[in-house]
Computed example of a mutant assay.
Amino acid sequence: MAAGDKNAATQTGGIEPVRHFVFILIPDFTLMAFSSAVEPLRMANRVLKKEAYSWSVVTLDGQPVKASNGLSVVPDGSLADLKTGRLGFHRPDMVLVCSGVTVERLSSADLFGYLRRLHGQGVPIGGMCTSAWLLARAGLLEDRRCAIHWETLPSFAETFPDVEVQADLFEVEDNIYTCAGGTAAIDMMLHLVGEQLGPAVAERVSEQCIIDRVRKPQDRQRLPLNARVGVHNSKLLAMIELMESHLAEPLTLAQIADKTGLSRRHVERLFRQLLGRSPARYYLDLRLDRARHLLLQSDMSIVEVAIACGFVSASHFSKCYRELYGRSPQADRRQAGGSTAPDLIS
């Protein structure tokens, strides 16, 4: 794969230096997030008719790395090459890490130490898709805000309680940039281009990308609730929102009815008429769905997952889980673990 010109000392028009970015790709990284971050830089160069940005691609060992969709990317070098200046520059203007579905398996003291050192030197650090996980392990996110993909957010929040994780498109704090992945990487990079080259350039890049607007950091990651559940009844949607925000400490049906100003009988009728199941069943399914995400995306114990999802005992949790998914939590975790790569330690 072709990377940008790696000479960070190159001058553009004799005035501004070319900003050189480094992308560190982790095995099973999300190709959509990576390409969505690179393309706005390329487009900025195109609309300006000069080189404002260049970039390099790095992997931990310098070998080609496979994305989660099976495509491989050939890097410009290894993390060791990057640290020792063998890539043709001594310090990048920004480093962005891109990971994917197996991020919780990575442990790299070299990577974490390098990111801490660069951040201490004032170099902006970015994490795309699930890479906030790695920045948190590197100690860069404690008491700071960050964004991460909504599917990974529950396990991240349980693992890193000192990090203020948000379900936003992207977050910027203390020179650390994090985004939810997917096309949110475009929004984060457009924000960065706007900061560095001006809003007019960011708008022109947006038009080149066929994007009708530059989304704000706090724009939602997921579809609106009414689109996800396929109903438009405001009372029902309010009850579902209550359930989703109280998974660890479930509300009683009486509490839900009271908070929405309805009778228990009316609550029961709305759920059965519009969703085809009782409110208790719907609430249980929400908690089990959260539990399944925690099981497959964290190393929390079965008991910890059960407690985090509002179950009073691991045995009750396992019984409910088996009834819905046809196998025990332990079996589900083993099956998922058997289909993914081994722990990535460097």
Results as ranks from 00 to 15, higher is better:
54 S>F: 02
208 Q>V: 12
41 L>I: 06
311 F>T: 02
9 A>D: 13
276 G>P: 03
60 L>K: 07
309 C>F: 04
50 K>T: 15
178 T>Y: 10
151 E>A: 08
333 R>C: 03
259 K>P: 00
217 P>D: 13
136 A>T: 09
273 Q>T: 14
264 R>C: 09
306 A>L: 03
164 E>T: 11
87 L>S: 06
181 G>D: 08
8 A>N: 12
130 T>K: 04
41 L>A: 01
133 W>C: 05
148 I>L: 15
162 D>E: 15
235 K>T: 00
39 E>F: 07
342 P>I: 04
322 R>D: 13
194 G>Y: 11
336 A>I: 03
163 V>M: 03
338 G>W: 10
158 E>M: 11
294 L>C: 13
289 D>T: 07
97 V>H: 05
43 M>Y: 13
166 Q>Y: 02
135 L>G: 10
40 P>R: 08
211 I>K: 15
78 S>T: 06
284 L>C: 02
231 V>E: 03
51 E>F: 01
109 A>N: 09
31 L>S: 11
61 D>N: 14
51 E>W: 01
277 R>E: 15
57 V>P: 04
325 Y>T: 10
303 V>W: 12
281 R>P: 00
176 I>D: 01
57 V>G: 09
169 L>P: 01
163 V>D: 06
223 L>P: 00
10 T>K: 14
67 A>M: 08
161 P>H: 06
28 D>A: 10
127 G>Y: 05
79 L>F: 04
84 T>K: 12
144 R>F: 03
109 A>M: 06
